[in-house]
Amino acid sequence: MRAQSAAGSDGFVAPDVSDFWQPLFGTDGPFAVTRASVVLVLSVVGICWLLLAATRKLSLVPGRTQLVTESVYGLVRNSVARDVIGSKDFLRFVPLLFSMFILILVNNLFGVVPPIQFPTMSRVAMPAALTLVVFVLYHYLGIRKRGVVGYFKSLMPPGIGIGLGLLIYPLELITYFFTRPVTLALRLFGNMFAGHLLLLLFITGGEYLVFEAGGAGMMVAGGVSWFMAFVMTVFEILVEFLQAYIFTLLAALYLAGAVADEH
């Protein structure tokens, strides 16, 4: 956007943060309806419709749609929820983890799907919203299981003397109340933001080199830049899947820590 508008006047302006700020409706203030919000709502409607349609008529011998649905569901249910939380009470977390995984996956993939091409999670508020759910839930579960005092006691690693404990305990508090949520949200945001920025750079840069820089060498460089954009897109698809998986896996780990019998 800015790159194109600025390109006419004085050389190439690299894409930056402002390219991710796209208020669509209302003001451009704190409660503007942004492109990320619209894409997120669209994704939720699409996911709900797809899942409800795919699970309307389930049979013991699955068809193709059911097979795909069941494989994605089985990945979250068995490889994430059951293996991490344990077979005792993983089932109650499956809906949360499954909806989290599928929402992040679809929104990440939107980053490279042509008509949309905007990764919702590149706006930090989106992963922050999901992280908030995980953060509140695992503290709530831990406190409900052990009581407030018991929960804060359980944050202390066992088998450590008082001296070392005084040193370790603040670090544990920071881990549970700051590092975990912040890294969980920022990891997803950072990957999506950086990946998309890189794609923008290669594509708009290539465009500038080919159409405006002038000269055969520049055009070749622009072609190389576009090829890199293609390679990065393929790589980005892998990252998008991986980040959705990692976010869900870590959420399961944190929840498992809260409901585990032993620290």
């Binding site: 704190p30 709502v41 996911i47 919203a129």
Partner: peptide, 23 residues
């Protein structure tokens, strides 16, 4: 970019809640 936009935060929570309920 690491300052969460309040509108998006609200949209995120509400949209996830709806998806969670359906799922």
């Amino acid at each position: 970019p690491i300052i969460p936009h309040p509108g998006e935060l609200v949209f995120g929570i509400v949209a996830f809640a709806i998806l969670y309920l359906v799922v």
